[in-house]
Design a protein around this nucleic acid. Structure first.
Lengths: 370, 370
DNA sequence: TTCCCGCATGCACGCGCGTGCAATTCGTAG
DNA sequence: CTACGAATTGCACGCGCGTGCATGCGGGAA
């Protein structure tokens, strides 16, 4: 055997046993093509040095055997899995599935695939994080899940690059991409003030979420600093039921608000339904309801929700860029990117006399100064 | 050095350099704990033989180093990645994100994670399949993507177990889980007939989709075999725009239909909007519109869509079971599971005089015989 | 005490492939 | 024809960990 190194036994895969055999390996291909395993590897490695002849022979053998490089083995060597983890909660929120889709498309273009971690409401995050770390994903995109200092430290110790999307941490070491929570909430407050409301309210999300906190703070600050007093605030929990309950409380009170800022579109949709079906209030006339996100559904004719947008494309764009910079290994400092949106004017809130213009897509938006 | 095999240099990870070092390996842990690498492996392998003492020492060292088994390496050895691929298209269809979530939760309980492949509308599937095969997922769940014979053969040759969810192939070798397309469509026809309609129509999906074909065939067959003639059929393309366009054509015709079966809820939502906003038709009174899926949004007060359900829990349940049987390696024959649903009665279609009852959850459903 | 069995442990190997290094080949200038 | 640099190729190793095998150890029965 060892005297003649070349004519090794042909791979078993050639015996057509119905396709039940193991997948062909690089060695199988090498034997069939009469080359070394290295040659096979180089054929499938971009930028490696292989002659045309060899490459052709390898490709032919590979095609015959249905060979495909085993990315598991490749990952073990290179330390790069080409897999990015994505953590999402509140997946029933209409904003997130499109976000996930956009992420998948854009990261796909860069050759990354997504390993999905959906968190049930109220579930513990620790065991999930453990799973993620074991899987050796190259990076982790976390949406709307609080990454505490201790957990962030855990990730760093494990060499896991983390990116917060749609939420942030106080630590400046953690990169984050968020919509313009402060600017958007202030714009909403200004919009409601411009359209002559009197009793301001807000339905918040949960306090462990930075987006909710930031929006609440900016909304409140704007109103207070403009002599309109602090708005009535009531906590939703990001669920439709929680939002509906909050709306009922709000609308049943003795001094019913005429302007309600909902922490996100998901919440606003529930509030819209309660206002109409249970209180006979027509949004935009009897009560103004504004959301945040501009999820696709906000534009649907049944809702026509006025809302401050978090532009998907820009958000995902910023995410891929931040990710690329994270993965490039050049220890660039973590960025905290804020993607600005616009106040998209539709029908769920009373319109102010001035300031409404059309943007390039024909959508009506409100620009305070105009 | 080599004279004393035990006191090896301590792992570099102990030197606290800010957490930028490589992740600890089993050997690092073994050195720190004063045991062999095998002992570490066995400690983290369920069912392996380790003494309490050893386990404790290993766990302590592992905790100190932040060690977690590298699943990449484990996969390479065991040939099991604990990752299931999921292919989805039409992700803007409100039925799919909840389906994905349910899959994620249920498969998570079994220790599987999802590698996500979202297909842009009209994109080629071949390169995606190639990616999937390289990643050595243990199984592939395909939703609403046609798996041609040739592609199925490719998967089988590569040893990839495939499961079709919400669609099927004619080949009996490919396992599939679907809703009751034939039964549901026939029930819808019967329901519309029972509520005294005269001009039946259907907006289909695309012809390369088995669910659309099956629903169309059963709907048509029922109507024809009951002397009601073939319904007007018009093709949507699963997009909101396509559905809206189809609805406009339908409602603009000289003989406007009074009963419209939409191939799925997504299509129905668009049709509902067009009927109301553009033709002043109140669904349930002026025209009956029925969907298929019972996506969560169908129950929302703005839609109240009458629809035939594809119960998520049962669907996912059947999927996990089929998956388990696929993965168990006992070459059980591929099953074609059909999960029956119910005609959920809401407000978008005229109600028949009889047959409506309440199910256990208080929902109104229609049972032909009652 | 002796023997035997079962548990615990370490050793060594290999999963499939990328890659540094040395050997070889090829092309072409001299 | 000779020579020399560049391109190509094979060899050998190892990424991190599971696991078969052999060894060692302890305990209960004879």
């Amino acid at each position: 055997m060892s005297s003649t190194p070349r004519p090794l036994p042909l791979p078993a895969a050639l015996a057509n046993d119905g396709g039940r055999q193991q997948a062909a390996t690089a060695i199988d291909v090498a034997r069939l093509a009469g080359v070394s395993q290295s040659a096979v590897s180089r054929t499938f490695t971009k930028g490696a040095s292989v002659s045309k002849t060899t490459r052709a022979a390898v490709m032919a053998a590979a095609a015959q055997l249905g060979y495909r490089p085993n990315l598991i083995a490749r990952s073990l060597i290179t330390g790069r899995s080409n897999i990015v983890g994505v953590v999402m909660a509140h997946f029933d929120n209409q904003f997130f599935p499109p976000l996930l889709q956009a992420l998948s498309f854009e990261l796909g273009k860069l050759g990354y695939h997504l390993l999905l971690f959906l968190i049930p409401a109220g579930a513990d995050f620790e065991p999930v994080l453990d799973d993620i770390l074991r899987h050796r994903v190259e990076a982790l995109i976390m949406t709307s899940v609080a990454l505490s200092e201790s957990r962030a430290e855990l990730c760093r110790a494990a060499g896991l690059k983390v990116l917060q999307l749609n939420s942030r941490t106080d630590s400046p070491d953690i990169a984050s991409i968020t919509g313009d929570n402060a600017g958007g909430a202030a714009t909403i407050a200004a919009y409601l003030a411009a359209s002559q409301h009197r009793r301001y309210a807000m339905i918040t999300g949960m306090d462990d979420n930075s987006a909710s906190r930031d929006r609440e703070a900016a909304y409140t600050r704007w109103l207070e600093s403009h002599g309109l007093g602090a708005p009535t605030r009531i906590r939703g929990d990001y669920s439709l039921e929680g939002a509906a309950a909050a709306a009922r409380t709000l609308f049943s009170g003795t001094t019913r608000p005429d302007a309600v800022f909902c922490v996100n579109d998901h919440t606003a949709l529930a509030v819209l339904g309660v206002a109409r079906a249970e209180f006979g209030l027509e949004p935009g006339r009897d009560v103004s309801i504004i959301g945040f996100d501009d999820a696709p559904i906000a534009a649907w004719p049944e809702y026509r929700l006025t809302t401050y947008s978090q532009p998907l494309a820009a958000l995902v764009d910023a995410t891929t860029q931040a990710l690329a910079s994270l993965l490039d290994g050049t220890g660039a400092p973590a960025e905290q990117v804020v993607v600005t949106g616009q106040l998209v004017v539709r029908a769920s809130a009373r319109r102010p006399a001035t300031g409404i213009i059309r943007d390039g897509d024909g959508r009506e938006i409100w620009v305070p100064g105009s």
